[in-house]
């Protein structure tokens, strides 16, 4: 698959194009081109390093939404073994925008669920761009309850622009479905790890994101409202999304500093899509070590610590 480059990556794209051209010429040329290619590769790498060492929040948002970014099912395939997808909320339907099932993490059975975006137009429509409906959140709740019943760790992967704001979703109780998950996750008697792999879009993300540890990939974003939505309300135009992205503090680095997430997993140079295997390996290692921290706790301690964390969210002054 050809790499797609974002606007701010254009200098890298140009270099890479040159490298491709040389490779093409290389076969039937007498010139020693391999040296030139190696030189350009080094330049491309250092340029990438430069550009990526100083990304704005808006640029990170674009990376989080990169069309080639690995999605939930990609990571499930790469990080776990023996995945069996489980479907349906038992009440209304099965939501392809939120997938889940059982798998093994280094041999250990777990329940995993996450938002699922589509790769091509057809799949995007089928997956509703990763915007889940009430039946998706209710399927998630059903799987969470199953995980609790059999004492399986729960791992949730967050990647959604937000819960689906459609008529049907409203009719079937979108708010209630989300709220129900929040209160349930505050009380589940099994360890929960949530990882933002791409977009953490508001309530639709949080609905599977109440956890013992909240982790983010380096170029993931997590926000109360999309930068575009915030800009159109507060700046009266969605064109100020760049400013809104900065103001909202949506990046992993910022949120870690604010104490709102517990850990950040570094991404391969250029982002997760440049090396999805490397990314998956890092995620797997992080999940294994985080889980081992949680599994030494008694159920009572686990819930007490989770509640304590939840109660501690917020900044205010007494006085």
């Amino acid at each position: 698959m050809d790499l797609k480059f974002l606007d701010f990556e254009q200098p890298i794209a140009e270099l890479e194009a040159k490298i491709d051209e040389l490779k093409f010429v290389g076969d039937d040329s007498e010139l020693n081109i391999s040296e030139e290619i190696a030189r350009l590769r080094r330049r491309s790498e250092s340029l990438t390093r430069d550009i990526f060492s100083n990304l704005s929040s808006w640029q990170i948002a674009q990376l989080a939404r990169h069309p080639q970014r690995p999605y939930t099912l990609d990571y499930i395939r790469l990080c776990f073994d023996d995945f069996q997808e489980l479907h349906g909320d038992r009440m209304y339907g099965d939501d392809p925008a939120l997938v889940g099932g059982m798998a093994r993490l280094e041999g250990q059975p777990i329940v995993v669920l996450g938002h699922q975006k589509g790769r091509d137009t057809k799949e995007r429509v089928k997956r509703n761009y990763g915007m889940a409906s009430p039946e998706g959140y209710r399927k998630a709740l059903r799987l969470m309850r199953m995980a609790e019943k059999f004492q399986l760790p729960l791992i949730t992967l967050i990647d959604t622009p937000g819960a689906y704001p459609g008529m049907g979703a409203e009719e079937r109780g979108q708010s209630e479905a989300i709220a129900r998950n929040l209160i349930a996750m505050a009380s589940l008697r099994n360890p929960i790890i949530s990882l933002v792999i791409g977009e953490g879009g508001s309530g639709g993300a949080l609905a599977i994101g109440v956890a013992d540890r909240v982790l983010m990939l380096q170029y993931g974003i997590y926000s109360v409202i999309s930068p575009e939505g915030c800009a159109s309300i507060l700046w009266k135009t969605s064109e100020k999304a760049e400013l809104a992205a900065e103001a909202l503090g949506i990046t992993a680095e910022r949120l870690l500093k604010l104490g709102l997430v517990d850990g950040v997993i570094p991404e391969p140079l250029g982002g997760a899509h440049r090396d999805s295997r490397g990314m998956a390996e890092a995620i797997k290692n992080s999940l294994v070590s985080t889980l081992s921290e949680l599994q030494v706790l008694s159920v009572g301690n686990l819930i007490e610590q989770r509640r304590h964390r939840l109660a501690g969210y917020g900044v205010y002054k007494e006085g």
């Binding site: 949080l206 109440v210 109360v224 103001a247 949120l255 604010l258 709102l260 969210y313 917020g314």
Partner: peptide
């Protein structure tokens, strides 16, 4: 921002 979102939880 995210402080507000987490008030839901």
């Amino acid at each position: 921002a995210l402080f507000s979102l987490f008030q839901m939880a």
